[in-house]
Design a protein around this nucleic acid. Structure first.
Lengths: 270, 270
DNA sequence: TCTAGCTTCTCAAATGATGGGACGCGCGTC
DNA sequence: GACGCGCGTCCCATCATTTGAGAAGCTAGA
C-alpha cells in the first residue's frame, strides 16, 4: 500500500501499523477514539478496530471510561525490563542525587543509540522549573552535551560511524551544523575533559556533560547538568565539571568498573 | 495455527507473534539468538528472522555486539509515555521518600489494572536488601496489601466486578484462597483503615498499604511499606500505618485533590 | 579444509488479514 | 418524537500479505 513505511527492507505490514497506532497514542496528549485513530493513520475503521482490540488484549493500550484509547501499562512493564540490563540506572541514582544537591540544577543520565541520545534518568532540584525532557525521550547527538561527551571519548572508528549518520538538523541558531564544526568541537571537548551545549538544543538552555567510562575506558553513558544560561554561566562551568567528574567516578566505582589504577585522569581531567 | 492464542476473539497473528517475541526477550535474563527465539516460539527461522528485523527497525529490540537480540529502548520510551498521564508518580516520589526515611523499609506505589496491581514506583531504604519486585511488574490483587487497600475502598459494584475476575492462586500457605475469606479481609481492612499482607504473597514478607484517594474519594493508587516479617512486626503496624496515612494525604494534596474538608477521616482513620 | 551451527535471503503457495458495508446505539437538532 | 449523524462493533468473501522450505553465506573450531 501507499504506506509511509520506513525504508527498511523487511516488512510486516501488521507490525508497522500496530506500532503506528502506538506511536499515535504516544504522541497524543489525550486519549483518542477509534475514529480518530483510523482517520489519522488512514486505516479503515474495522482494521483499526481489530488492531486496537488485539493491542488491548495484550495490554499495550487501554480504554478510558469513555471508551477512548491510550497507551497501556504493559508498555511500562516492557520498558522497565528493557533498561533492567543497564542497571547502571539504579546504581547511578544516588550519585545523580548528590550532584543535583551540589549544583542545584537538573541532572540527566543518557545512553547513546545510533545517532541519538536517550535519557534514561533525570533528577530535578527541589522546586526547580520543570524541564522539558521526558525520561525515555531522545535527542540528536550533535546538539546535546551528553551526545558530545560520549562521542568525544569513543574510539575513532565507532565515532566516525556515528558521525556519518548524523543529519545536521538545526534546532537553534547555535546548533552545530557541519561535520567539521562538530569535529572541532569534539577535539575541544576531549581537551578540556567535558562537553558543553551552549544553547544548541534550546535557546536559553546550557548544559555540561561528561561520559561514564567502563572498565575498558569506553563511554557507556553520560551525565549532564543543565540549567538556564543565566544561572549556568561560563564561569561556573569548571566548578560544575568538577562535581560531574566526581559523580561519574562514583558511578563507575559502583558499577564495578575498576578505576584503572592511576589512569583515571587520562581522558577526564582538565 | 495451533497457537496458544489468549482466548480473546480478535486476532492478528502477526501481532500475537511479535508480542510473544518481546515477551520471550523480556523474560530471558540474557539476550537470545535467532535460533533460540525461533525454537522457543515454534516459529520458522525465516519467520522469526523477519519479525526480529522489523522489531529492530522499530527499535523494539536491539542487537548486542555478538548479534543476539534483546529488548530495545524504544520500549522504554513508550513505557514512560504510558505512565506520563499518571503524573501521580512524579508527585508522589518526595512523599514516598519521606515515608522510607521514616520507616526504613521499602515503599511501593501501585495502580490497579483488571485484577492485578502494577507497581509504578519503588523506593528502597539505603543499604536494604534489594527487594524482589521490579517497577512495572504486577501481582494478583488478592495477595497484596496494595491490592486489598484499593479493593476495600472501591465502590461496591466496581469491587465486585474485580472480585469476580480473581483466580485465587495460592502463592504461600497464607494466601487468601476463597472469595469469602477475601470479602472478610476487605471488611477488616475497611474497619481498621489499612490493608495488611501477612506473608500472603511471599514467605517472610509483610506489607501494609493504604489507598491514595482522589477528589471523589475513590482510590486511584495505593502506597505500601514492605519488609521482612521480623522487622515489620504486628506491634509496629499501627505506627507504620500512621506514616502511610500522612504520606498519602500529602500525595493527594499535591495532586490537587481537595482534602474534602472535614471528611478526610471517612474512610481512612482507624 | 571440512563440518556444524548459525544467520540471511528468495520465491511460490495459501493462509490470514483486509476493508466494504450492515447494524445498533446515543446524542443533539429540527 | 423523529431524524440524521457520528461512532463503535461485527461479518465475511476476496486477495494482498505473510508464510516457511530450502538454498546460500558466514564463522569458528577441529
Amino acid at each position: 500500500m501507499r504506506d509511509a513505511a520506513p525504508q527498511g527492507t523487511y516488512k510486516v505490514q501488521a507490525l508497522d501499523r500496530a506500532f503506528a497506532v502506538l506511536d499515535l497514542l504516544g504522541e497524543s496528549e489525550t486519549p483518542l477514539g477509534l475514529a480518530q485513530v483510523a482517520a489519522s493513520l488512514q486505516l479503515h475503521k474495522s482494521t483499526a478496530h481489530r488492531f486496537l482490540m488485539v493491542l488491548e488484549r495484550h495490554r499495550m493500550v487501554e480504554r478510558t471510561a469513555n471508551g477512548k484509547f491510550r497507551l497501556g501499562l504493559r508498555l511500562f512493564d516492557f520498558g522497565n525490563r528493557a533498561i533492567e540490563q543497564y542497571d547502571l540506572r539504579d546504581r547511578a541514582q544516588p550519585h545523580l542525587r548528590r550532584l543535583v544537591a551540589e549544583t542545584e540544577e537538573t541532572a540527566h543520565l543518557a545512553l547513546l543509540e545510533a545517532a541519538r541520545v536517550i535519557y534514561i534518568d533525570k533528577i530535578e532540584p527541589t522546586r526547580a522549573v520543570r524541564m522539558i525532557t521526558r525520561i525515555g525521550a531522545s535527542n540528536p547527538v550533535h546538539c546535546t552535551s551528553v551526545g558530545k561527551a560520549m562521542l568525544a571519548f569513543l574510539p575513532p572508528e565507532r565515532a566516525a560511524e556515528i558521525l556519518r549518520r548524523i543529519r545536521y538538523e538545526r534546532l537553534t541558531t547555535r546548533t552545530i551544523a557541519t561535520p567539521e564544526a562538530l569535529r572541532a568541537e569534539l577535539d575541544k571537548t576531549r581537551r578540556r575533559g567535558y562537553a558543553v551545549d551552549d544553547e544548541e538544543l534550546e535557546e536559553g538552555l546550557r548544559c555540561i556533560a561528561v561520559p561514564v567510562l567502563d572498565a575498558q575506558r569506553l563511554p557507556v553513558a553520560a551525565v549532564s547538568v543543565s540549567g538556564p544560561s543565566f544561572r549556568v554561566t561560563a564561569q561556573k562551568l569548571p566548578s560544575i565539571a568538577n562535581y560531574l567528574l566526581q559523580c561519574v567516578r562514583g558511578i563507575s566505582v559502583d558499577m564495578g568498573y575498576t578505576p584503572a589504577g592511576r589512569a583515571t585522569r587520562t581522558a577526564l581531567s582538565a
